[in-house]
Computed example of a mutant assay.
Amino acid sequence: MISFFKTNIQTRVELNKIAKHLNNLLLGATWSVDLTEADKILRIDSSLDKIGDAVSLLTKFGFNCENLRNFYAPSA
C-alpha cells in the first residue's frame, strides 16, 4: 500500500526529530517527506497498513498529519 499524508513538517531539523521513530515504526517500508512541496507530503510505501500508526506518531510529536490517499497493490 502506498499512502500519502499532508503534514506541517517544515525543516530538515523537524524531519530528523521524527526520522528514527518513523524508521522503527515502518520496518521494511520506505517513506519520505517532500519538504519542497507546499503540503509537505509524507509518502509511505508499506506492505502493512500503518495509516493510524503514522498519524498517531506525528501527532505525538506535535505535527499535523492528514491522510490524503491510499493505493492498494493488486494481489499476486
Rank of each mutant, 00 (worst) to 15 (best):
M1V: 03
I2S: 02
S3G: 07
F4G: 05
F4T: 14
T7P: 00
T7Q: 03
T7C: 01
N8G: 05
I9P: 00
I9R: 01
Q10H: 04
T11P: 01
T11R: 05
V13S: 15
L15W: 00
L15I: 04
L15G: 04
L15M: 12
N16V: 06
K17W: 00
I18Q: 02
A19Q: 11
K20L: 15
K20I: 06
K20C: 11
H21K: 07
H21L: 14
H21A: 10
L22N: 08
N23Q: 13
N24C: 04
N24S: 15
L25G: 10
L25H: 07
L26E: 05
L26Y: 03
L27S: 09
L27R: 08
L27Q: 15
G28A: 07
G28M: 08
T30V: 09
T30G: 10
W31M: 11
W31P: 00
W31T: 09
W31S: 02
S32W: 03
S32E: 03
V33G: 01
D34F: 00
E37H: 06
E37R: 02
D39G: 05
K40N: 02
I41N: 01
I41K: 07
L42K: 06
R43I: 12
R43F: 00
I44C: 03
I44L: 14
D45G: 06
D45H: 05
S47Y: 06
L48C: 15
L48K: 14
D49P: 06
D49W: 14
K50L: 08
K50C: 03
I51K: 15
D53K: 11
V55C: 01
V55W: 14
V55E: 06
V55K: 13
S56D: 10
L58H: 05
L58S: 00
K60W: 04
K60F: 09
F61A: 11
G62I: 03
F63S: 02
N64P: 02
N64Y: 06
N64I: 05
N64E: 08
E66G: 03
E66P: 07
N67W: 13
N67A: 11
N67S: 15
R69G: 11
R69F: 12
N70V: 11
N70R: 08
N70I: 08
F71Q: 05
P74A: 04
P74S: 01
S75G: 14
S75T: 10
S75H: 12
A76V: 13
A76H: 10
